[in-house]
């Protein structure tokens, strides 16, 4: 049993990290009342920038390259997400449609520029990815150490920490209260002197930064290069995690961990005794089927923020 856990849990953590980051971004955006189907595109942008920066500056930054790469990816994706904010907050576009456009645009830009700069459909492999490490001290703890802290990626733990930070920001600070109030009842928030538009802009930009972080972490831990098929559905899965986690940062983290776990099962399922007989297809589609069940209320009712998806128009009732 210990061997099984030792093989599953690091892989589950490894697959979850990008989902957690991106889902946290989704929580920010949707809590402020802006539906973000564009998470997928934001991850594509993050993955693209992370890989390109890493390839271009590996000589300059050496072993620090992956860290600088994810920071740059965060900034670029945050700027990119402003398009979604402008369309859905200022131009009152249908937020779902604008999100779809973000997805198209990110992929189009990424693949176009890859062709332009590398002359082929995918980039080279990065020379400075993240490597798995044993975490000092903690990895020496008996039983827990080998399961949780040996051969793991630091990014997984940063993701879990980030979820706690986002929870604190949303539920324990006045900024978080304002952000949530804008998503529940924008008119009441406006009456109380909160600038609905700027709160929503901030929330969407935060989702861009976190989506970019998620995409670049995925690219620099799992994919290691960029092509049209680097990010295929991870963003949508993060969106599912947001809903499965009932728009709560810790819930979203739990859901993302669960999805990562389900993915790791389908990756190494054959090596696990009691799962070897389960056809792989069940494990592959489990995250999606469970999300549908969750939404249908079989696993507790999921209630979206009240004003989610509705543009706020000052003075209208």
């Amino acid at each position: 049993m210990l061997d099984v856990l030792q093989s599953i849990i690091p892989i589950a953590l490894f697959y979850s990290a990008p989902l957690i980051f991106t889902a946290l971004g989704g929580v920010f955006s949707e809590r402020s009342g802006v539906v973000n189907i564009g998470l997928e595109g934001l991850m594509v942008m993050g993955a693209f920038v992370g890989i390109v920066f890493n390839l271009a500056f590996a000589d300059v930054f050496g072993t620090a390259t992956p860290w600088v790469s994810i920071l740059v990816a965060m900034v670029v994706s945050a700027i990119f997400s402003v398009i979604h904010a402008v369309a859905s907050v200022t131009f009152r576009a249908d937020q779902v449609v604008s999100g779809v456009a973000i997805n198209f645009l990110a992929l189009g830009l990424g693949v176009f520029l890859t062709k332009q700069w590398y002359g082929k459909g995918q980039t080279d492999m990065v020379s400075q990815p993240f490597y798995s490490k044993n975490i000092p001290l903690l990895s020496d703890i008996p039983i827990i150490g080998p399961i949780f802290f040996q051969k793991v990626y630091v990014t997984s733990y940063i993701a879990i920490l980030a979820a706690i930070v986002v929870w604190f920001v949303l539920y324990k600070t006045s900024f978080g209260l304002r952000l949530r109030s804008v998503g529940e009842h924008p008119m009441a928030a406006d009456t109380n002197g909160i600038n609905v538009y700027s709160m929503r802009y901030v929330a969407v930009i935060l989702s861009g930064a976190l989506g970019g972080l998620g995409g670049s972490v995925f690219a620099l831990t799992i994919a290691l290069n960029f092509s049209q098929s680097t990010i295929v559905g991870q963003g949508f899965m993060s969106l599912a995690a947001v809903i499965f986690g009932k728009w709560h940062p810790l819930g979203a983290m739990g859901a993302a961990l669960f999805f990562g776990f389900a993915q790791s099962l389908s990756v190494i399922g054959a090596g696990v005794p009691f799962l070897a007989d389960v056809p792989k297809i069940y494990l592959t589609i489990a995250p999606y089927v469970l999300t549908i069940f969750a939404l249908a209320g079989f696993i507790g009712r999921a209630e979206a923020p009240k004003a989610n998806g509705q543009p706020y128009i000052k003075g209208s009732r």
Binding site: I83, A87, F91, A93, V97, A101, L105, G108
Partner: peptide, 22 residues
């Protein structure tokens, strides 16, 4: 010209249609 340019054009067309308000 890389043909992927068209993907960008299509994405932008969707944006403009979605933002028809403006």
């Amino acid at each position: 010209v890389p043909g992927e340019l068209v993907e960008i054009v299509i994405a932008l067309i969707i944006f403009f249609v979605a933002s028809s308000y403006i």
